[in-house]
Design a protein around this nucleic acid. Structure first.
Lengths: 340, 340
DNA sequence: ATCATGGACGGGAGCGCTCCCAAATCACAC
DNA sequence: GTGTGATTTGGGAGCGCTCCCGTCCATGAT
């Protein structure tokens, strides 16, 4: 297991070459104040001449921080990894993190063994904080991290009484406004294609759907609800099943834009016109929503803001040592386009 | 920037509690030989009682290794991040790495600033090696890593005379056999939808396509080639363009299964029967290829083997200190199904 | 009882950095 | 020229671990 790198110059060697003390070089590479401009330049030249690169292990050990945060994707996410939600979120986190000087590292946790290994990695101090992608109901990882007192922020929550810090959107309100919109458009037989049943986000959106119907004095029929898993394929299948059970359907709320895209395809194949025969609403407002035919009415999730909020919460927790949990619920916005 | 974790017990404290020396505890946690079974148990109990977790920064510093490798995805990949190729590869790398005890960390490099930051991270010793996803022609990162003498393995290569270690598949041969297969099926107007023109893999597959046509005494027309980017959407678009230019097309080689899926959709909409009117071949052999209608004939890339090979090459380079580059070209296999 | 042999074990010497305090230097007013 | 306070600078003391050498002790041959 000899993984030695060839001899890299050390801070001390830089100091010797520049004719200054260790402390001064340290100040220079950390951009700290209190170094005369001329000295700084001398040191910088020595650094370049030697091709010096700070040893991060030593820095971590002495400074008691890793300057890195992990973004963990757990198994159930993984099968949805290929969906745009993830790349969008990762991008936005990357942007939000980019000026903190911290590295974002994505980590895959697909099994108990990998969960354990990650936990040791995190508890071992390799990261200063952990971001968790849409966790499922029974996932123990957030609790393990909380117990280890590692700053942690979830995207979405596992249940209504989640305590660990999280950033979520108002899924109930979003779904409700979407269905209200369908009702305003005169639709009455409104179906919904949900996400995986074991995710809280799914339950929330379903509740919003039901509340809107109840508010209109309509009774939500169980058979108007079909389960999907956020993928296009599941949207196709669920829509087909719904049409079979309820040919009279004239409105659909899908769990995501990708799901809605699948539903659109099925509706098209079945000869239903959108929005004339059936109005369709998605969830997310990804670029995809503007490329469907017809362009998709959808509930916008503020991905940028979500990424920024997650990073902000994480930084706050890191700053004060994870003594409190914080929750942020972001508002959604209905983007009305051509599919309703 | 105070990112201090609360006081974790140290190895020394464990040693004190177990009534042994530091060395012995170190031997126990590293599963090294030369510890009496009874002592080992005593130490293990102390570890559990204190909830000891080794400090990885200290271990890295003293041991001169990070026990982690990075998988870097550069910007151009990123827009294809949502395609299954990536999740498949990541999975297979995860499996291949899982029994080495090393952490796999995915890293996104979307800009020069991020490239620089990653380089410092890697040169700073945070990873023992680097895996690079399908790099584009002009990407300087592999050279920078090579110069820093960091063990590096590419998936695919940037050009025909790539020197940095890589694992690739026989793209020319794969495409050639696919086109030959179409020719055997009596097709003569064979088009191809390629990947991004600036990727070597695209050029190779195009060459295989042309060679097979030439072998059959056919002249490859420039207008039978349409550029895509591996996405389904690009498959749809490219196929539509091809049909417009060449309504007589009776065979298509797509750059990937996802692209082929897009092409299938367009063909279907255009009322062409597959394979009766047009035969379609994909590339990759993802699960997707078995779910299309009709099921897709495709050139199989041995993803599992690719992941294993990458890890093996990387470990070898780490072992001997990156003194040589190694190349592995894996064979492809034509999976004949219903679309041809 | 004596001695050689080898397996267990303890702990010193670093790994390369940050933190921080004391010392040195400088600027300026008197 | 002297004193005062601010600004720079040097370097000791760790951070928590691995490596490795020397010691200790049990075992068995003599």
């Amino acid at each position: 297991m000899g993984r030695r790198r060839p001899g890299t110059p050390t801070l001390e060697e830089v100091a010797a070459r520049a004719g200054v003390g260790r402390g001064t070089v340290s100040r220079v590479i950390n951009n700290a104040a209190g170094v005369k401009e001329s000295t700084r330049r001398t040191v910088q030249r020595a650094i370049e001449e030697l091709g010096y690169v700070p040893n991060l292990a030593a820095r971590s050990l002495a400074g008691r921080r890793a300057d890195a945060v992990a973004l963990v994707m757990t198994e159930p996410d993984w099968r949805q990894f290929a969906e745009p939600f993830f790349s969008e979120i990762v991008s936005s986190l990357g942007d939000a993190l980019s000026d903190t000087g911290m590295q974002l590292m994505l980590t895959l946790v697909r099994s108990d063994a990998e969960r354990q290994r990650f936990l040791e990695y995190a508890r071992g101090g390799r990261v200063d904080g952990v971001l968790l992608m849409s966790v499922h109901a029974g996932d123990p990882l957030p609790d393990m991290l909380a117990e280890a007192r590692l700053p942690t922020v979830l995207l979405g929550r596992r249940s209504g009484d989640e305590y660990v810090s999280y950033v979520d959107v108002d899924n109930v309100g979003g779904a409700r406004s979407a269905v209200s919109h369908l009702l305003e458009r005169g639709r009455r037989a409104i179906a919904t294609i949900t996400g995986p049943a074991d995710m809280y986000v799914t339950q929330c959106r379903l509740r919003g759907y039901q509340e809107a119907l109840a508010l209109a004095g309509l009774e939500g029929e169980q058979t108007l609800v079909a389960e999907g898993d956020f993928t296009t394929e599941s949207g196709r299948r669920a829509m087909a099943a719904l049409l079979r059970r309820h040919p009279e359907i004239d409105g659909v709320l899908a769990a995501s834009d990708t799901t809605a895209a699948g539903a659109l395809e099925t509706l098209h194949s079945a000869g239903r016109r959108v929005p004339e025969d059936v109005a369709v609403i998605g969830f997310d407002d990804f670029p995809l929503a503007q490329r469907t035919t017809p362009r998709l009415t959808t509930v916008r999730q503020p991905i940028e803001a979500m990424g920024r909020a997650m990073v902000r919460l994480l930084l706050e927790e890191m700053e004060e040592g994870a003594v409190a949990w914080r929750h942020v619920i972001l508002r959604t916005e209905l983007m009305v386009r051509e599919s309703t």
